[in-house]
Each structure stands twice: as structure tokens, then as C-alpha cells.
Design a protein around this nucleic acid. Structure first.
Lengths: 178, 178
DNA sequence: TACTGATGTATCGCGGCGATATAATCGCGG
DNA sequence: CCGCGATTATATCGCCGCGATACATCAGTA
């Protein structure tokens, strides 16, 4: 997740942690936290795995007086890893949190993979929707008023999301036909 | 969170882990996972903290042939702790994940606290909504089509949730007036 | 009988989060 | 021109929830 987002962003340009977090925050801040407490450990991990490397200190230090910033850039392995994560987009990709991040990198995603992700997500949301529907239509065992209200709301919003996904999918298909 | 949910459920009756998880799952499974990997450690923690105790093995073993099940019940401290969590419902309560759980125990929640939680949640969702709105109306720097679509959807759904919360709040007030 | 699925408890490592520490630099009002 | 708060910047800590996995027992059934 974080890994995917970082590798994706670093395709644009080499960046240091603070900047990555800032970009991530303005890109998807409404949906996820992207806290430093995850960011820096992840950078460490990526570096140890050889997916990113620290830029030589000279250029960044020279360009502007700032000190103590570590600018990272992708290695070949890093680029491969990102491509791999894209192609092998699996079930965990359709989860609430992952899906948004993947969507944000759709312009960098091959059309067929885009389709697979959208359909996977749709299936996932449909399942939740059916669960909610079943729960609500169960006329036996009376449900707490508030819980019922929560489920009503949940049903409505999952339903909306399914319709939204259908539109996105339809758009993809029409583009593909061109 | 988990702690709150468990203590809340145990107010109904003494239960063992598997049953707690089952109840939790059918109560809020559409919104959270409630995995065993969290449940059992939490039970352990609660027990060590003296908030719950294991029922003497005799009665449960006698009642039905099942073995190896640990039935927990609330202690006085446990009940106090739950009441405390209710009354001191703070900012983290309005988060996506906590809110649903709290709502599920609203029938056990004093009216004034219910109100505070609903209003806190509303404020929280409103803030997210304004963030999304600002992001979308920023005509400068063109946004990726998919990201824009994501934010449009986010805006619409936060807006709906705010309206939904307004209805709940209005209902609370009308009830209070009676 | 043998196997499938539900019941039941438990642990493991991972990853994300909020809180917190630390420090340099920037812009601004006094 | 000095001081002070905001921003830039890196980093660690412990907590908590999750999925995966392991391992038993028991019920129904093929």
C-alpha cells in the first residue's frame, strides 16, 4: 500500500520523505492518513530491499541551502517492483483502502489491469451490499434502531458506489472500442 | 475499539470468544473485520486488566458437553470501564471505524452523549467534505481524471452522510422535547 | 468409515497509526 | 535586528487490527 504509493510517486521525480508525505497527503489525504510513523519505516524497508536509493548528497545540498534531507530515487528493481504490483493486482487490491490508492495511479496502469481492478472492486462492494441487504430484510430478531439506521445508510452508499463503478467500467469499455 | 465492543456485548450475557466474534460479525461485519487475531489478545488484555473474568469451568462444562471453551463475564471494573468509555467519548470516537461501533451501542448510551458523538462525527465528516470540495474546486494544476472522479464520489458520499447525521440529530432533538 | 464443515482457542508477523522527540530554517511583527 | 511561531525535515515508540496459520473436537453425511 504505502510501498505502492511511494514507488508510484517516485516515478515522477526523486523526492525526500517529507515531500512524499505532502504529495500523498494532498493526493489522497481525504481517504488515508499517510503518517510519518509509516512513511519513514517504509522508506527504510524499500531502501534495504534495494528498490530505492539515496541520491548522492552533493546535488541536493548544493541546489538549496537546506540540510539533512534524504532524496530517494527508484532503482531498476524498484520500477520492476511497481510494474509487478500493478500486474499482479490481487484480491487485497479491492479493499477500501487499497482501491483509492490504485485509482490514483490509474493513468500509469495498463487498460486491462484497470478493468480487472474496477471489476474486482465492484464484486467486493456488491458482496458487502448483499450482506447489508440480507441483514436488513431479516424480519426476525428485531434490530436496534440505530444499528438498523447504520445498515440502511451502508446499503445506500454501497449501492451508490456500485453504480459509480459501473459508470467507470462503461467508460473504460467505450474508450477501448475507439 | 475492540475493547469497547467486547465490554458492550458482555453486558448482555457472559460469552466465550467464538461467540463474541460471531455476534460482532453479524452486528457490524459489513464495516469491520473483527478477526480472531485481535479478539483473543484483547480478551487476554482485558482479563489481565481485571475488566473481565473467566467463569468457573464447572457450569459451562456441565451445561453442554463442549470442552475447552472459556466463558467470560464482566467485573465491576469492567462495567465501570465501559461507562467511562461512553462518557469520555473523545475525538477518536468520530473516526470512521469507531463511530459505527459506538452507534451499535447507542441504546445503552445516555442521550447527551449520543448527541455529542453524533455532532462530533458530523463535524469530522464535514471537515473531510470541505477538504474534498477545496481540492475539486482548485482549478489550477489539472488533476488526473480518475483521482478527480474519486474525489467527486467522496464529496458526494460525505455530503450524504452529513445529511444523514443531520436527520439523526434532528430525531434525537425531537425525542428530547417530548 | 472417512471426510467435510462448523465450533473453538490461540499465536505470529506485518503494517499503519498517533504521539512524541529533535533540530534547523523561514517569515514576520515588535 | 531580534525573538518567536510556523514550516521543513527525519526518526522512533508502542498500540492495535488484520490475515494467515495451526490445532483440536464434534456433527452430519456420503
Amino acid at each position: 500500500m504505502f510501498e505502492f504509493a511511494i514507488l508510484g510517486l517516485l516515478h515522477e521525480a526523486p523526492m525526500h520523505g517529507y515531500e512524499l508525505r505532502k504529495r500523498l497527503h494532498e493526493l489522497l489525504g481525504a481517504f488515508r492518513a499517510f503518517s510519518y510513523g509509516s512513511l519513514y519505516p517504509t522508506l527504510r524497508r524499500l531502501q534495504r530491499a534495494g528498490l530505492i536509493v539515496e541520491e548522492g548528497p552533493e546535488e541536493s545540498t548544493l541546489s538549496w541551502g537546506r540540510r539533512a534531507r534524504k532524496v530517494y530515487q527508484l532503482t531498476t528493481d524498484g520500477k520492476e517492483r511497481f510494474a509487478d504490483l500493478l500486474v499482479n493486482a490481487g484480491p487485497q487490491t479491492w479493499d477500501d483502502d487499497s482501491f483509492g490508492v490504485h485509482l490514483a495511479f490509474f493513468s500509469r496502469t495498463p487498460a486491462d489491469i484497470r478493468m480487472r481492478i474496477l471489476e474486482g472492486r465492484r464484486r467486493c462492494v456488491e458482496e458487502r451490499r448483499e450482506g447489508l441487504r440480507a441483514r436488513l430484510s431479516k424480519t426476525g430478531e428485531q434490530i436496534d434502531r440505530y444499528t438498523r439506521e447504520l445498515h440502511r445508510m451502508g446499503l445506500e452508499s454501497t449501492d451508490r458506489e456500485v453504480r459509480w463503478l459501473n459508470e467507470l467500467i462503461a467508460h473504460e469499455q467505450s474508450e477501448q472500442d475507439e
